[in-house]
């Protein structure tokens, strides 16, 4: 069964640059970042100030406006929206494109044959795909989760001040002390649940597509591609919404 199926739970190394291993997930996420930056620059250069924006500008304005309204509907404050919006929009767009990459033709199928490890001898080669959806690499999702939870603390300190830490360390009475301990644990759990939710959904999607393509290459995988488009969008939205809600909760004072 494993002869025809190529499933790897971790990103495979392509090459090494000065001791730093470059994996296929690194490569595709860097390419995606560059494309997004180029798109942003293209939109900025073509920006015209008229009342009926057209084409690219119209699409960009629609996306930005939707995300802005989403942020505003959670925070209910222009000041906070202006602080959170760039991060939220960045998270959403970057994750969305990275999720959708996994269903592009060529991703995971075009690759190179590298010599296998010394254990198997030099004649054997292993197939290494050139591209891999970065969301299907735990390093990528873990980095985003750490960023999101770290920024939650930063916004908490920014808006509530040092009394933000009262949430975690509180000696006023024994119950509050244990509640603080639980809060610390829940912050750590947030990182794990963020990382595993995104990674699990996208990686499971990849495995699902690989298995259905392996069992029945015609027609049958088609609805699963539709499902993956949907799941990619929903997971990007879930990550963004949760980050937004946590940011907003951290900015509210703990004493009601």
């Amino acid at each position: 069964m494993e002869a025809g199926l190529h499933i790897s739970i971790s990103a495979e190394p392509l090459t090494e640059v000065g001791g730093l291993v470059i994996t296929n997930a690194d490569l595709s996420s860097v390419i995606i970042s560059m494309l997004l930056i180029l798109l942003a620059v293209a939109v900025r250069l073509n920006l015209t100030n008229n009342h009926r924006p057209q084409g690219l500008q119209n699409a960009a304005e629609w996306v930005m406006e939707s995300l802005y309204n989403l942020t505003q509907s959670v925070t209910n404050s222009r000041v906070k929206t202006h602080t959170f919006f760039p991060l939220i929009a960045g998270f959403f767009l970057f994750i969305l494109v990275n999720n959708w990459v996994s269903i592009l033709p060529g991703v995971g199928t075009i690759g190179i044959n590298r010599p296998a490890s010394q254990l198997h001898g030099n004649e054997q080669t292993v197939f290494v795909p050139l591209f891999r959806a970065a969301s299907a690499d735990l390093n990528f999702t873990l980095a985003l989760a750490l960023l999101s939870v770290g920024l939650t603390q930063v916004f908490g300190i920014k808006y509530v001040g040092l009394s933000y830490f009262k949430k975690f360390v509180n000696f006023s009475n024994p119950i509050m002390f244990f509640v603080g301990l639980l809060e610390i644990i829940s912050e750590v759990a947030k990182v794990l649940s963020f990382a595993f939710r995104l990674f699990g959904n996208i990686f499971a999607g990849e495995v699902l597509l690989a298995v259905t393509l392996f069992l029945m290459p015609l027609i049958v995988p088609l609805p699963f591609y539709g499902l993956e488009v949907f799941v990619g969008f929903i997971q990007a939205l879930v990550f963004t919404m949760l980050s937004l809600v946590f940011f907003n909760m951290a900015t509210l004072s703990h004493e009601h």
């Binding site: 699990g200 959904n201 499971a204 879930v238 919404m241």
Partner: peptide, 17 residues
């Protein structure tokens, strides 16, 4: 509802991982 389903589904995804 879809957001809630995504959260519930995530738990099955942990098991799948």
């Amino acid at each position: 509802m879809i957001l809630g389903i995504a959260f519930a589904e995530a738990i099955a995804i942990y098991a799948l991982v």
